[in-house]
Design a protein around this nucleic acid. Sequence first.
DNA 1: CGTTTCGTTGAAGTTATTCAAGCCGGGTGG
DNA 2: CCACCCGGCTTGAATAACTTCAACGAAACG
Lengths: 251, 251
Amino acid sequence: MAISKPAVPPRIPCQQCPLRPRPSFRDFTDDELDFVASFKVAETPAEPGMAIMVEGERNPSLYTVMSGWGFRYKILEDGRRQILNYVLPGDMIGLQGNVMKEMQHSVEALTRMTLCTFERERFPQLFRSQPTLAFDITWIAAREESMLDEHLLSVGRRSAYERAAYLLAFLDARAQAAIASHTELRQLPLTQQHVADTLGLSLVHTNKTLRKLMDQGLVRWLDRGCEIIDAAGLYRAAEWRPPKEGARPFI
Amino acid sequence: MAISKPAVPPRIPCQQCPLRPRPSFRDFTDDELDFVASFKVAETPAEPGMAIMVEGERNPSLYTVMSGWGFRYKILEDGRRQILNYVLPGDMIGLQGNVMKEMQHSVEALTRMTLCTFERERFPQLFRSQPTLAFDITWIAAREESMLDEHLLSVGRRSAYERAAYLLAFLDARAQAAIASHTELRQLPLTQQHVADTLGLSLVHTNKTLRKLMDQGLVRWLDRGCEIIDAAGLYRAAEWRPPKEGARPFI
DNA sequence: CGTTTCGTTGAAGTTATTCAAGCCGGGTGG
DNA sequence: CCACCCGGCTTGAATAACTTCAACGAAACG
């Protein structure tokens, strides 16, 4: 009698990836898709609050987010935490570990996530045999840098009110591009503590600042997240325009 | 009579690049060196205060710093400026422009600089024919990201005193690796305004904070820059350790 | 020898942090 | 069912950190 296997979650072949058809991602050739498919070794779920990657780790896995939200962060010895950026569907996690000796930041799941795991060992092969994918990796790294530049400007030079408006507008814009095909509810799955740790503010002050945004009718705070009511108003409050990116690659 | 040409600065062939022998840079194969040499089209000087790159620019040049200091920054409409990072010998400038449509930040020379200019059009060829160099480009982008992460942590979560100590320690460590073969004077060519715009603080508060570092005997302020007296003391004040990187690539 | 750039300082005012509660909804165990 | 607890949000008050304003000194420059 055949031994019944534990239920394996259905593994989606890259060729039928639900993300690819979305307008914000660039089309891949069959050859590229085949390589990516052969590069993928597993599909891993992650629960909210789970550590996906830990600072100091060596040879971490290389992932792409298929669904869900997460965030990258660093902490000082005494526990002060700075959230560096968020990861959304289509984003890579762990690229740094393939390039540096050890991870310089941690990653945690914000919602339930599904991650595509890739084979680290074949990473050099990607550079040898797939120059356009190699270029895409550079593209992805440059995009991350550009987001970090924007955050640094924000944390360094914007007022608390502008900063908060910027962050929510920025996340809304990313969510629109990466997730929402036809806009469902525009809501961001964060607590005010996450916002505080992203903006470099205390929780109390963050709360009072968000209240102002709510009083202006720009956002609403829900159970465990925030709903964007007036995205254009947020843009104005932050003196920010979302960069209009062309179709982006994702591995 | 022959028309006397303007003095052309001697152009250094990449094979005899004064930077390459330094211990912090990785060795290149002859093949790689030949490619880089053929990739280089000019050697450009830049004077202090000169704009090397401007936000919004399309198709900017691609450079590597051969000598001198510069910095990357962004400004808000009302003039508030945030310095994002500094560029030192061996660093690339303008990579973003080869990947995104337009530059998202500006770059300015801090001291007199010499820049090696590369041929943008051959950038795709680099990915096709030189996979290890392509990997190096990704390496460089990942290193920049890692520095930005560190800065964001600093600006978001460290106190003014820690931030200042961190910045000076960080720049000293980079200067040691990139410039000083046998430690000359460990001095950084910045004004207090630059420090303020990097830390996200006002000039006045920066001045008072730097004074504390001076009173502790950690640094000394000179004409138009700062001399590092006690690097280990700065590390301690910032709760920071310089990451020990292996030999790094540079194009 | 005036002008500009850079560093310095005191004082007043604003912004943000810390401390200390309290509220509300959901989940758990008695 | 209710009591309790816990995580997340909210609020007021005291304090600390940081900014702004205003001014001055000193070196560098043309």
